[in-house]
């Protein structure tokens, strides 16, 4: 089971990953992953006393952080995944989403559709 302690995750996200942490919210602290002034990902932890984040929660947080699977967040908190390694995964996920969005865009009606010449046999 990939459970984590909330204070360990808080420390890892703020100090190791360098997240901008917003603690002004009423119920949650928010962790913003930024690079070159672009927000790549974010996640949140409930305020209040230290608590255990279950496997399901760790999975959802890893998804929000664009780390893919829970194991990557566990490794990051356990220091077996470096900051650079984590950022590589996050960047790759962001690039993948960008390209899938581009691929899903319909062809502009002002541009003629590409036509391939029929090949001669």
């Amino acid at each position: 089971m990939a459970s984590l302690e909330s204070d360990k995750v808080d420390g890892a996200l703020e100090n190791k990953l360098g997240c901008e942490v917003d603690r002004k919210g009423r119920d949650h602290n928010f962790y913003w992953v930024k690079e070159n002034d672009i927000v790549l990902a974010r996640t949140k932890i409930s305020k209040g006393p230290k608590h255990t984040l279950s496997d399901t929660l760790v999975t959802m947080m890893a998804r929000q952080l664009q780390l893919g699977v829970a194991g990557n967040l566990v490794k990051f908190v356990a220091c077996t995944l470096s900051k650079d390694g984590a950022l590589d995964i996050i960047r790759a996920a962001a690039r993948g989403q960008q390209s899938s969005v581009s691929a899903a865009k319909p062809v502009s009606p002002t541009k003629p559709a590409l036509r391939t010449k029929p090949t001669r046999r």
């Binding site: 917003d22 928010f30 913003w32 002034d37 927000v39 990902a41 974010r42 962001a94």
Partner: peptide, 22 residues
């Protein structure tokens, strides 16, 4: 319920900096 509001306000405050999926 509260995270919906906090996320809306947090993302809205950073709107110019957000990546595509955000």
């Amino acid at each position: 319920a509260s995270s919906l509001v906090e996320e809306l306000e947090g993302l809205g405050a950073r709107e110019d900096q957000l990546s595509q999926h955000l």
